[in-house]
Amino acid sequence: MFAIYKRELRSYFISPIGYIFVAVYLAVSGIIFSICTLNAGQDSSVATYFMMLLYMFIIALPLLTMKLFADEKKARTEQLLLTSPVSLMGMVAAKFFAAYTIFAGTYLVSCINFIALYNYGTPNTAVLFGSSVALLLVGGACISVGVFISSLTENQLIAALATIVVILFFMMTSALNSYIDSALIRSVLNWVSIFERFSNFAYGYFDINAIVYYASISFAFLFLTVRVYEKRRWS
């Protein structure tokens, strides 16, 4: 399992995709930070910054996950992994954590932004920390969706686009609220929405329900990925 993780991690930096992800993420998050926090003059409020990062995830994270399984299938190396003494769970987890490592590492680097806050203002460390934890979990959920979709196709582009659509759905269901009359459907949409739940963190409330929800999405999609491979084996 560790071998797959290591290889996957390296492959991000053999192809340009790893560099592109890191560079774009850092640049865009820096710009967002300048505009939404520093230039907005709202003291040390980071709420908008974190919300904007979520929008960025919709595009950025599929870049990391699109190749994970799609590429293996195309290069026919999938067979190697599936006939190696590695469990399916281990294989899926290795790939998930490889993508996650890149994402979390890049996020940690982007925390440099916060230094400015400490120099010139009085940020609420608890909010920064809570939001970061939630953000890392949302990232995990998105990556897990990407892993799953990548296992369904051998075309990276399709994997990326489909992942964007699904993440968009999970993020934005609450945005449909204004068009829907039924209170029941509205509450369901709110419940599903990653975005809606995240707003709690950004405003300083550490929402355990949301944490459990994000983690559940991650597990659910990783589990589905394992099932995809099991099904293919048994079909």
Binding site: A3, A75, Q79
Partner: peptide
Amino acid sequence: KKQIGYLPEFPPLYLEMTVKEYLNFIYDLK
């Protein structure tokens, strides 16, 4: 699977790796 070495119809190679990296990867994988 530990007892088996398998060469599928299409050799499962990671084209971007060197032979050395590839064999070391297989070594770890197994």
